[in-house]
Simulated scan of single mutants.
Amino acid sequence: MKYRSVFDIIGPVMIGPSSSHTAGAARIGRIARLLFGSTPHRAHIEFCGSFAQTYRGHGTDVAIVGGLMDFDTSDPRIKDALTIAKDIGLEISIAVNDSQGEHPNTAWIHLANETRGITVKGISIGGGKIAILETDGFEMNLTGDAWTTLVFHKDHFGMIASVARVLADHRINIGKMEMSRKAKGKDALLIIETDQEVNETVGTEMKRFKDVALVRILPPL
């Protein structure tokens, strides 16, 4: 693994005893919230492996719920996240998932409101670093380290070129791009990491393309 700074080794400024189980969990929760687009009404969280065994003692549950309410890793409100969630009407349920073959620090998060829902799979890999591996059946490797644009669309020729043209017109450089699709010609997801900020004007231009269902813009965490 390539480290960009000393903070990648010693971990982030955080509330809690463990960068993997607390700071990482908070970041997973924050990205899940960003993917959903707002604070959900309901959240069902399933912990696997080490998360499942130690989530109460290490504060993984309060950290991930804090992340769902957009609390940063250093936010002192994290320790009271379950109470705050109850106060704002965010229903939380937590379960242990004993599925074999999962990363030791895996969380499945199911978010919903009255009209829609989303399922996100995230892992904490140490030092507060995380990866989102799946969103609603789309495979990915989303770290939250860069500006990231996600374009949900129908798979057909020209989509990548059209989206890339919008970024080029705004002088935004692409650092990494990957495509995830459920089947040829079916639902697809374009994931683009960029060197510069992507604002809502760029997202609005992308949304105008035929067969684009949704655009999500995620800032670096």
Score class of each variant (00 low, 15 high):
residue 99 S to D: 15
residue 133 L to S: 02
residue 133 L to M: 08
residue 143 T to V: 10
residue 145 D to E: 00
residue 130 I to F: 09
residue 140 M to T: 05
residue 117 G to L: 04
residue 110 H to I: 10
residue 118 I to M: 13
residue 103 H to Q: 10
residue 131 A to N: 01
residue 126 G to R: 15
residue 100 Q to H: 01
residue 146 A to V: 08
residue 138 F to R: 02
residue 140 M to V: 06
residue 111 L to M: 15
residue 100 Q to C: 00
residue 113 N to K: 02
residue 134 E to M: 10
residue 115 T to G: 11
residue 129 K to V: 00
residue 99 S to R: 12
residue 125 I to F: 05
residue 144 G to K: 07
residue 93 S to W: 15
residue 123 I to N: 01
residue 106 T to E: 03
residue 139 E to G: 05
residue 141 N to T: 03
residue 115 T to R: 13
residue 110 H to M: 00
residue 112 A to Q: 12
residue 98 D to H: 10
residue 139 E to F: 06
residue 99 S to V: 13
residue 103 H to E: 11
residue 130 I to C: 14
residue 117 G to M: 04
residue 138 F to D: 11
residue 142 L to N: 05
residue 147 W to I: 13
residue 118 I to Y: 06
residue 102 E to D: 03
residue 138 F to L: 14
residue 112 A to K: 13
residue 111 L to D: 09
residue 138 F to A: 09
residue 143 T to K: 06
residue 126 G to Y: 03
residue 105 N to S: 09
residue 108 W to P: 02
residue 134 E to H: 00
residue 127 G to A: 00
residue 103 H to A: 09
residue 147 W to V: 11
residue 134 E to G: 01
residue 95 A to E: 09
residue 124 S to W: 11
residue 123 I to L: 03
residue 138 F to P: 01
residue 134 E to S: 10
residue 94 I to Y: 15
residue 129 K to N: 10
residue 143 T to D: 09
residue 127 G to T: 07
residue 143 T to I: 10
residue 110 H to L: 09
residue 127 G to L: 07
residue 141 N to K: 13
residue 125 I to C: 11
residue 121 K to Y: 09
residue 97 N to I: 15
residue 136 D to L: 01
residue 133 L to P: 01
residue 92 I to F: 05
residue 113 N to Y: 06
residue 121 K to M: 14
residue 137 G to I: 02
residue 119 T to E: 06
residue 112 A to M: 12
residue 146 A to R: 14
residue 92 I to S: 01
residue 141 N to Q: 12
residue 137 G to H: 04
residue 106 T to F: 00
residue 141 N to A: 08
residue 140 M to E: 03
residue 140 M to H: 02
residue 129 K to A: 10
residue 129 K to S: 02
residue 112 A to L: 05
residue 97 N to T: 15
residue 128 G to L: 05
residue 121 K to Q: 01
residue 144 G to S: 08
residue 134 E to C: 10
residue 99 S to L: 14
residue 118 I to W: 04
residue 113 N to F: 01
